[in-house]
Amino acid sequence: MARSDDSVRRRAARAYERGRVTAAAGLFAPIALLLVCVPLVTGSGPLWSAAGGVLALAGAAAAWRGGLAGRAARAGLLAGLAPLVAPIAVGAFGHRCSDCGLPASLPLCFAVCVAAGTTAGAILGLVAGREGRRALFAATAVGFAGASGALGCVFAGASGLLGMGIGLALGGAAPLLAAARTSR
């Protein structure tokens, strides 16, 4: 019953790693479901869906590892939910993304991708403003947000991806610049 301190220390360290895996899995399981399902629902194809699975695994691994990468992955994937679910939002307007064709519906898809990207960028800009190593955090988080957002905005083709990219840059620039100015 009574174990030596070293044995208890080893048990505690193992429990810590188990706890981190459980916490990462708990956080990323619903996001992984979205990352895998949204491309299938919007008709982007199984390749994009598989990419979503890989992205979810990468995010969970970063969250398990922790530190700046873990925080950035979490923030990036959560912010990236906005452009990821953009096709569903467009569907709410009565537009079917799977039938998306040039030219009539494209402005709507493009506008939604820009708006979703701006939302994600603004969230990341605000979160990154609180970090010490702001540039590295922002780069990692934007990488995750861009990748997850692309899985949603790819429904509108290259213009959707471009719109999301513009939105991310627009939304993130202002809070990051403001944070940089105050820290000077």
Binding site: M1, A2, R3, V8, R11, A12, A13, A15, Y16, R18, G19, R20, T22, A23, A24, G66
Partner: peptide
């Protein structure tokens, strides 16, 4: 004493398991 030791061990293991949250 044995119960105290058991409780302390369980507590420290649970603490580390929940440290991520």
């Amino acid at each position: 004493d044995a119960d105290g030791e058991d409780a302390a061990q369980e507590a420290i293991v649970k603490l580390f398991a929940r440290a991520a949250s």
